[in-house]
Amino acid sequence: MSSTQMLKGILEGCLLAIMKEGEVYGYELAEKLNRYGFESLSEGTIYPLLIRMQKEKLVLTTLRKSTAGPNRKYYSLSEKGEKELNLFIERWNRLSVNVNQIVKNKGGV
């Protein structure tokens, strides 16, 4: 797995976790990621991921009118998306425990 692919997987998990907190639209999602520390990421990175997540039926979408201008597309978790989020959290916890141990022991066992 290349590092960009790994980051994509992690980002997908993050998007699912943000959606778990409630309906969001693209710009909001990007801003939230940014606030959580992904500043170096260009904001558009989320859209290819959102297209894929939509294709895999992890998310549900609705178009809503906005007072600020054109319609916004809102995303929320589907049932399948919730399951995927739980799997991601499990995988992530395992991975971060492993990585933390290695880093703490500076590579020695």
Binding site: G26, E43, Y47, A68, G69, N71, R72, K73
Partner: peptide, 12 residues
């Protein structure tokens, strides 16, 4: 997708 990105760009 063009419309969605347009909305994003407008707000950005």
């Amino acid at each position: 997708i063009v419309e969605e990105l347009g909305v994003h760009l407008l707000e950005a």
